[in-house]
Design a protein around this nucleic acid. Sequence first.
DNA 1: TGTTGTTAATTGAACGCTCAATTAATAACG
DNA 2: CGTTATTAATTGAGCGTTCAATTAACAACA
Lengths: 198, 198
Amino acid sequence: MPRPTVKNVRQQQLIDATLMSIERHGLQNTTINTISGLAGMSSGIISHYFGGKQGLIEATQKFLLEELKQALLTRTSGKTLTPIDRLSMIVEANFTELQRSTAATKTWLSFWSQAMHDPGLARLQNINSQRLYSNLLFSFKQLLPNAAAVSAAKQTAAVIDGFWLRSALSATPIEDFKQAQILSKAFIKAVIVHNGVE
Amino acid sequence: MPRPTVKNVRQQQLIDATLMSIERHGLQNTTINTISGLAGMSSGIISHYFGGKQGLIEATQKFLLEELKQALLTRTSGKTLTPIDRLSMIVEANFTELQRSTAATKTWLSFWSQAMHDPGLARLQNINSQRLYSNLLFSFKQLLPNAAAVSAAKQTAAVIDGFWLRSALSATPIEDFKQAQILSKAFIKAVIVHNGVE
DNA sequence: TGTTGTTAATTGAACGCTCAATTAATAACG
DNA sequence: CGTTATTAATTGAGCGTTCAATTAACAACA
């Protein structure tokens, strides 16, 4: 277990402050001053630990990606789950409190629009998008014929991302996120029932 | 038929130039100079016709929203379509060339992240989101029992938005958009078959 | 039709502001 | 006391806005 160094601690504090600033002001109005102010530090510290503002923004995005990955791992590793239970865990991992937070949703949307003209970010995004699909496919293959599993995985990935997006943009995100999770799971059940070998 | 005034023409030219600039540089790096340069005009004209840069950005977004609305109208108004055909038209309207363009996808994503802390934009976005759902619900109600129609409309809205998003962010957007359209329609058919009154 | 007066459209340089980055000074720590 | 961590002050490039000046379009009139 690596003992947290001052560096690690400061970096995480700055990432947390970045999320907080984006939540309050949006990425557009997030400056090194709003971030360092929320972190209770001076603005120079950002260049010191991240090489500049852009470095901190990218680190924040990587943090969200990593958390999403870990959310599924902690729900599945070491446990013996039925394929259906594992599909439920995938849904839940995509709707954790962190991923539903205003800070995270704003950051994701900004990240995506940047990723479209930054190859490095685009690569990160594609890995993430593929991971959701692969995870779904793995479980569906244990329940459905191959062709049906592929189709089910594609549709489910779209349903999860689509519900997530519509909830994030909704006027009532809290209720909609809750519903989104339920509807995503219901969708998975329906897909299995209607395509399964009976 | 209202004859286009100089004002109308210039405003549309500037909106087109804005989309072009966002496509090339992203919204982040789009300035009044990149826009006016692409339009072949001077920078001052933007304030003159739109009150400022922000006004032009908002007008550009409204243009995309309006085009989406019109895309469906031109496909349906005056024609007598079966409910299933009308559902196909809804899918197609959401996947027109304009809406698949890099300029449009970058603009939508940037717009959404701004909409989250701008009530005016948020309102526009919610109207648009609701419209997709209402249009779907209208057609599904002619094919399915009420409860099933509601569920089908919600899921289909998520599928369309989800496929659109995943295609926009894909490394191969052209093929993925094409597939997305096919898969969305396939999804609708499956929903009807499995929930319909037989 | 040619001249003049009037309005509309457009330019682009100047201005002031914001903000990321840099620097030098200071504090904490072992 | 030397090194690392952090601050605070400063810089300068980049940006949107403004507005006085210029040009183009049109109207009035003889």
